Amino acid sequence: MYKAIAAIILVASAFPAWAQMSPEGLWRNIDDKTGEAKAEIRIRDIGGGVLNGALEKRLTKDAKPEDICDECSDDRKGKPILGLEIIRGAKKADGKEVWEGGKILDPENGRNYSLRMTPIDGGKKLEVRGSIGPFGRTQTWIRVQ
């Protein structure tokens, strides 16, 4: 009986650490060129381990609530940037703490990039890489508590 209770406590105490190593949650993206916070993005599991993320809050001084994605070329064209789904279809790579296979949209230019997300620093940060072929850029996002 004591072993069963100890096992339950061990599993329960490990869960928060495991959950933090997932990209699920609220993130503040930091512009890799300026170092300024641009937005907050909420990443959710939409089922089957597939992650999508929507722009929940814009932090730039020139952001207006009525801004729309003029540059988007898919179903997001003309939609408000606030609330826009910018991450679609990311899945955890087998045996790795990496989520990939999805796409990330840059609403400023309307382009979709191949996506790779890697939790770092115990899940407090998220390396987000968008790329087209061998070319891309990486931003480090900060988890919002």
Rank of each mutant, 00 (worst) to 15 (best):
E36P: 03
V128S: 00
A93P: 09
E97R: 02
G133M: 12
D106P: 14
K125F: 09
E40P: 08
R28K: 12
S13C: 14
K3R: 13
I81M: 04
R44I: 14
W141F: 05
N112Q: 13
V98A: 00
K125C: 08
I132W: 07
I68S: 01
D67S: 10
L126T: 07
F15I: 15
G48I: 14
N112T: 12
D121S: 06
R111W: 03
D31A: 05
V11F: 11
G122T: 07
A6W: 12
L115N: 04
K33T: 12
A90P: 01
C69Y: 11
I142S: 01
I120P: 09
E100T: 12
E36V: 13
A90R: 01
L115F: 10
I9E: 02
D94R: 05
G25N: 02
Y2A: 11
A19K: 15
N29V: 09
L51N: 01
E127F: 03
G53N: 05
S13T: 15
A14Y: 02
I9K: 00
N29Y: 02
I87T: 02
G89W: 11
G102Y: 09
G133K: 08
L82I: 14
W99G: 04
L82C: 05
W18A: 13
D32Q: 06
D45K: 01
E108P: 06
I86R: 00
G25L: 10
E71M: 14
A19W: 12
W141P: 06
A7I: 10
V128L: 03
T118E: 15
A12I: 15
G53T: 11
E127K: 15
L115I: 12
D106W: 07
A7R: 09
D106S: 10
L59F: 10
V50T: 14
